[in-house]
Design a protein around this nucleic acid. Structure first.
Lengths: 258, 258
DNA sequence: CGGTTGATTGAGGCTGCTCAAAAGGTGTGG
DNA sequence: CCACACCTTTTGAGCAGCCTCAATCAACCG
């Protein structure tokens, strides 16, 4: 897969096959929600024509930014987060290729959150007006985006449940299950079934409301029980059934409700 | 205020002043986001013409329900929640008058959550088609609902942050601050500045990821520090400034971003 | 008055945090 | 190629927040 090479390529090297080479992640994601004509597929693909690469760890949206353009993530991984004055940070969502930075196409107001790249990332930058015109011209795209937004909201709810009701090891297990599904949906699994997750344990902890120290210990325990391994930014699931049972994971919420 | 009487009135008694008496909460909420013509105001008001009262503790939407009608809550308080097989429950959101049950006008798929009344509640039941027609006829209403949905999402994010990063007493403090603001916005404060919160400590705990036992102890502590009192379903804030400081609360996210 | 639900209290224990420091890894400059 | 700085991971010890189990109170209701 072209994805395998994506994160292992040195960040400073330009993409050897050019920005158009990767199948457009936005199309791949939206097609799960609505079927498109060739015209529509092309219209979506055109959005990614003008895209830029951003290095890992760079800001994409800063808290306080005014209304921004529509920013579909085409390659790489980013996160939405909120910082405290005292240094604590809560990661609010993980953005995978095909996701739109800053919620589902938000077109208003100063953001109360930030978005930054976790790996090298390719992002398109679309004028709101152009985006709206696209939606008006192609109802199928509007439908797909609406359904996509509903799934995004279901994911937010699942995070609330995860933080509110589960213990550390269950939280990690649930998050890994969720990501495995989302990665798989978009054809982002490695050939051995694992997937790239370019996070430090510190960052993983701040998605889950856990300390990096505790995250580390729980990961070791899960590894010892032969459930998962997380090493060098790659996750491997060794026993999916047991992992899902531990996490009380049900993938239904990640699919189209209707 | 008419609200004072609302929860203290015996559930089986019909509203003495009739369903049309209360100023329409939906209008009051949406006007915060967009200004309406008289025609629009009337159109929104008409939605509530056919409304029904539901007793406290009754289901409004059940997990698994297919696409439902649009259900604006006109009076009373309800909650959106998700249950575990083992009895744990996470409350996902509190619905106040003017809020729409089941997210922001969702029109699709089997719900992965339930909604139930926490007090006696008045709800309108609107055909999706009629609702959509309303939006198409009145762009100002569409704008208001869109902005409202953005605020709802900001609230969801705030809950994630609350659960992920704050301790028990901070969580409670933050939730109380949020609710005080939302109640105040809609003119639901009692004459003494308090507000009705028809929750058991058990339910409060399952919004905050805390045990009812622990919730109880933290409430007592907050009461002892003269910050808040929560008794008989009524919250009183005794020291708003100190409470907000404790909660690290900033009301900006509850306003219109833009 | 007995039944039921919710609030309160106590004792004891596990989960997860804090503080600290050591161990690995990686990129930089001499 | 090594020394050094920096970041992440790992480990240890001690403690606190929060939970579990259990029982008592208080209020309401038929």
């Amino acid at each position: 897969m072209t994805v395998v090479a994506l994160f292992t390529r040195p960040p400073e090297m330009p993409d050897p096959s050019g920005p158009q080479s990767a199948p457009n992640a936005l199309i791949r994601k939206l097609e799960r929600f609505s079927s498109f004509s060739d015209v529509e597929r092309e219209a979506i693909g055109d959005l990614g024509a003008a895209s830029e690469w951003i290095a890992a760890g760079k800001p994409i949206i800063n808290a306080g930014d005014g209304p921004v353009m529509v920013l579909p993530l085409l390659e790489g991984v980013a996160c939405q987060y909120q910082d405290f004055r005292d240094g604590r940070r809560q990661i609010l969502s993980l953005l995978l290729p095909g996701d739109i930075c800053g919620g589902s196409g938000e077109v208003s107001g100063p953001a109360d959150y930030g978005v930054r790249s976790l790996s090298r990332v390719r992002i398109a930058r679309i004028e709101a007006a152009r985006f709206i015109a696209l939606l008006q011209a192609h109802p199928a795209i509007t439908i797909a985006l609406t359904k996509s937004a509903l799934v995004d909201q279901a994911v937010q709810r699942a995070w609330i449940v995860n933080l509110g009701q589960r213990r550390g090891h269950e939280r990690i297990a649930h998050l890994i299950c969720e990501l495995a599904h989302r990665m798989s949906e978009r054809g982002l699994l490695l050939s051995d079934g694992g997937f790239e997750l370019p996070l430090t344990q510190q960052e993983l902890g701040s998605m889950l409301g856990l300390t990096s120290v505790h995250t580390n210990r729980v990961l070791q325990q899960l590894r010892a029980e032969n459930l998962i391994a997380f090493h060098n930014g790659v996750v491997h699931i060794h026993d999916a059934a047991r992992l899902q049972a531990l996490a009380d994971f049900d993938a239904a919420y990640l699919s189209i409700p209707g």
